[in-house]
Design a protein around this nucleic acid. Structure first.
Lengths: 203, 203
DNA sequence: CTTCAAACATGACTGCGCTCAAAATTCTGG
DNA sequence: CCAGAATTTTGAGCGCAGTCATGTTTGAAG
């Protein structure tokens, strides 16, 4: 049989997985992460309590499942919005601002998600994070590549490390914002300063 | 009364706090974080179960208390070790390597700690994280400052943003190492590449 | 169609983090 | 030294994340 052929078993698993993710997303958004019990998710998804944990090893891991698709999309939208801008700094800032405004819709949830990103339990979820990271860094690298073509970035600058470093700076400040060490204006200022520094270099 | 005068009440609280932290450290190190119950910590510290949670809002927050002092010290030792080396890149790498080898002693615990750093519950713990961050960035800034005096770094480079960015890059890769996305050689390579990139600049 | 094995779902159950009303301890003013 | 206010400790109890033995469904082989 071709790999595309799927039996009733896999079909059911996919449907159930979809219902669980949808239920979790709705409840997390509506009640908050902590206030949502795994039993509520199970009820809303029409499955037994224990079934949740065959799709995500922990309740925390559900966050990865819930956000993966949306975040993949946000990266795309951020890239699309960033291409238009002028200098690379501005492009990169537009890219990250797109992500931040997505997180702004629900800061506590974003906080919980960020916490979880560095602590994934299941292998499936780990693969999802890898995929997401690849996408996010890939789009960044494209911005850098275009800037290189424009002569705005040195030809010698390696793409992936550049993208990684830009993201590392964003991620660090995002943590500060979500943890309450920074308010939004501070975040914006720090981000611009530090990204600019990376682009210009310390040397 | 002078602020230095402390009554029996505060004296007792300090002692109890010390016992709790010591007990938690011993148990975390010996049994691991997850395998240690809050009751065990309480027993070892000679207090009732509920008392733990007047000193740390959550079990997770205990990690901050346990590691604060040691990490402050590691930053000092890293700085002392780094001053000797030659170029700024190498100094910074020595600084971070000192921290990494400290974490290597107990990777799962370091992982738990890192997770917790971005999710502090109590205000006291938050202040401790602030203090630690200030120390870590401050020592880094000193290295940059000295390099600036040597003419190795542009006079225009602002110290704090530079230190922040260097740390952000380290922190990002540390997360990759602790989460198992990177092995040690990859970590070392990435760190050197990206720190060098920041120092040279993309432009 | 029947039989058997493998994969999956179930939900009662367990253990632990954390709460909170009550008890114990310390402080203060007279 | 005493009464009573203020703060801290206590530990039984609660709710929930996560487990696992049992039951159910699916797929394959004859």
């Amino acid at each position: 049989m071709a790999a595309a052929a799927i039996g009733r078993r896999e079909q059911n698993k996919l449907e159930k997985r979809g219902r669980i993710i949808a239920a979790a997303r709705a409840l997390f958004t509506h009640k908050g992460f902590d206030a949502t019990t795994s039993q509520e998710i199970a009820d809303a998804a029409g499955v037994a309590g224990g079934t949740i944990f065959t799709y995500a090893k922990t309740k925390d891991d559900l966050l990865i499942l819930v956000f993966h698709d949306e975040m993949m999309d946000v990266a795309e939208r951020g890239y699309a919005a960033a291409r238009g801008s002028g200098a690379l700094v501005d492009q990169v800032i537009v890219y990250f601002e797109t992500m931040v405004s997505y997180h702004q819709r629900d800061l506590p949830l974003a906080h919980a998600l960020m916490r979880q990103l560095g602590y994934v339990g299941g292998d499936d979820q780990r693969a999802l994070v890898r995929e997401l990271m690849t996408r996010v860094l890939g789009r960044l690298a494209q911005l850098v590549e275009a800037a290189k073509a424009r002569g705005e970035v040195a030809a010698a600058s390696p793409l992936l490390p550049s993208a990684r470093s830009l993201f590392a700076i964003y991620y660090f400040h995002l943590g500060g914002l979500l943890s309450g060490y920074l308010d939004r204006p501070q975040f914006d200022r720090n981000l611009r300063t530090d990204l600019g520094l990376l682009l210009r270099g310390l040397g």
